[in-house]
């Protein structure tokens, strides 16, 4: 056990290095620049690959190459850059290549601003790029989780051969907190017999997503959907806070969940029974848990730094069994504890 003080962005970098990330490809964009800078120092220091690419598109396609070569690889960006990376993410989903993609979200749409935001939820959890696909989406709410979930992201990516996204925001990226890091951690690496590393002693491997044969692409999609179904059954993660006796349930992730916890602590002192369900995986979404809780509480309040995106998934999970209300701010603004308490 070793405690260190770090920013969230550095925490992701440290997590990637400890998880055995072999190749990192980045491109500058605020508010994730600390991460690219961290990797530019620590990857070469550990005899790993670092390239500052000519664009977000080039970076994600370098990730495609390194992943096809069987290596653990990552890229990071912030919202406008993520839009560009969607090309590569869709191709990796189609070619079944593992990779870790980090989005330290900022306000949008367009160039927006550089303040923290959760407005890329739809883009992250609904596929985002073209075609029928999903990425596993992990939502840290602390520097500790920036580290832990990045390590987990590499394992999940390899396990399911697909892109895994760490969906954070500028606030968690920039803030400093103490965290516990793994010491002498050896990641468990799995065999990748599909990788492109020269066909010595075997038939040539191909990494591709073009399926032109009659019915071939539908068959491929059916296989992908079966994988997604397994993930929905196996990999849902969430955190609970004071939900055992609550009659009002807050649902929030990331930064919003921290504010929600603050609001709960104030409300509890006033005798109000409020709890928090914090999704850690945004895809797969903890819909069964939310459905179960919706039969036990009087109402649910979803809190987001967006116009209400996760709100739709909460409403789908609740199936009208209790009222679902919303507290949200947009354009890089952050909801206050007071605004949540007023809604309770």
């Amino acid at each position: 056990m070793k405690r260190i003080l770090m920013t969230g962005n550095d925490g992701i970098g440290k997590g990637a290095v400890d998880a055995g990330c072999d190749c990192y490809f980045g491109y500058p964009i605020t508010p994730q620049n600390e991460l690219t800078a961290y990797m530019s120092l620590h990857m070469p220091m550990n005899d790993r690959v670092f390239i500052q690419a000519e664009s977000e598109i080039a970076a994600v396609n370098m990730v495609y190459g390194a992943s096809a070569a069987g290596k653990r690889t990552m890229t990071s960006s912030s919202s406008p850059g993520l839009s560009l990376k969607l090309e590569g993410i869709s191709y990796m989903a189609g070619s079944e290549l593992p990779a870790v993609i980090v989005n330290v979200q900022r306000g949008g749409p367009g160039l927006g601003n550089i303040a923290p935001s959760q407005a890329d939820y739809f883009q992250a959890v609904k596929g985002g790029g073209h075609g029928d696909y999903n990425s596993i989406v992990l939502a840290p709410n602390s520097v500790q989780e920036m580290y832990d979930l990045t390590v987990l992201a590499f394992d999940l990516a390899d396990k399911y051969r697909m892109p895994v996204m760490v969906l954070s925001d500028g606030r968690i990226g920039q803030m400093m907190e103490p965290m516990t890091v793994k010491e002498n951690y050896k990641p468990t690496l799995i065999d990748k017999p599909w990788a492109l590393n020269g066909c010595k002693g075997r038939k040539p491997n191909k990494v591709w997503s073009l399926k032109l044969g009659d019915g071939e692409l539908e068959e491929h999609n059916i296989k992908l959907q079966a994988k997604y179904k397994e993930i929905k059954n196996q990999e849902v993660l969430f955190d609970e806070y004071m939900i055992d006796d609550c009659d009002t349930l807050l649902v929030a992730y990331g930064t919003s969940a921290r504010i929600a916890r603050g609001a709960i602590d104030i409300a509890r002192k006033k005798g109000q029974k409020v709890g928090l369900l914090r999704p850690i995986t945004l895809w797969p979404f903890p819909k069964d848990k939310i459905e179960e809780l919706s039969t036990k509480v009087n109402k649910i309040i979803t809190i987001e730094m967006s116009a209400g995106q996760m709100l739709e998934d909460v409403q789908l999970a609740v199936k009208g069994q209790c009222p679902v209300e919303f507290v949200g701010r947009m354009g890089g603004a952050i909801p206050t504890e007071q605004s949540i308490i007023e809604k309770i």
Binding site: V49, A53, A58, A59, A66, A68, G70
Partner: peptide, 11 residues
């Protein structure tokens, strides 16, 4: 070229 870069740097 970007994919080739990724593969060659990796291997």
């Amino acid at each position: 070229s970007a994919v080739a870069t990724g593969i060659k740097r990796a291997l």
